[in-house]
Amino acid sequence: MKDFLAIAKKKFNSRLLLGTGKFSSPKVMKKAIEASEAEIVTVALRRVDLNDPGDHILGFINPKKYLILPNTSGARTADEAVRLARLARSFGLPAWVKLEVTPDPRFLLPDPIETLKAAEILVKEGFTVLPYINADPVLAKRLEGVGCATVMPLGSPIGSAQGIKTKENIAIIIEQANIPVVVDAGLGSPAHAAEALEMGADAVLVNTAIAAADDPIAMAEAFKLGVMAGRKAYLAGIIAGSQIARASSPLHL
């Protein structure tokens, strides 16, 4: 049986979602997306010019090939996020939204109260909502309850490349979730991505670690492989760790 990632009844082969910020040029971004084999790419609405068909980000992403996932980066309140999402839809972008409500511009940590408020409104308006959250299991269930399509808990602050510092809580979120769990933010290397997938996360979203690498295109491919390795290992069944040695070739004396 083929292993798909299903979000809101849409099926994807890739479990790697890509962000489009911080690239040195649209060309490099495009090549990195291709190398990653991602099928979902997220775009900050504040970075794009929706009036410009040749926009330096949107103009380089083929909407037939990729699902463009608008994000509300920069929004401080539910109200601002909702307005941004509506704006994107009015310009013909998919009615999908990566909901980011980050009142603190420094660490960009998500506001749970405003995120829940915005999610409720947007789900009612027919959006497919993928909320960016702190790794809070109760909040994840509340968001699932109001009809979100995924939850996207952070591994560590955006762009920090610290890896999964919220491991125990993400494990609880995965354990309890009926919707896909996408680990978003803080993944610094393919090993971090593999770790998330090995834990049972359904997908990861990566931006800085690829865009800011010396060779973003090669790094995009490395992340693709990390994600595939992690997923495959998860499906294969990872053996439990142990304090004592267990011989690889047991001696039958």
Binding site: R47, H56, G74
Partner: peptide, 18 residues
């Protein structure tokens, strides 16, 4: 900027944000 491998960003805000 482009020659140095940097992307010039002309827009990094949205009116909806205030």
């Amino acid at each position: 900027l482009r020659r140095s491998g940097y992307e010039p960003v002309w827009k990094d805000w949205e009116r909806e944000l205030g």
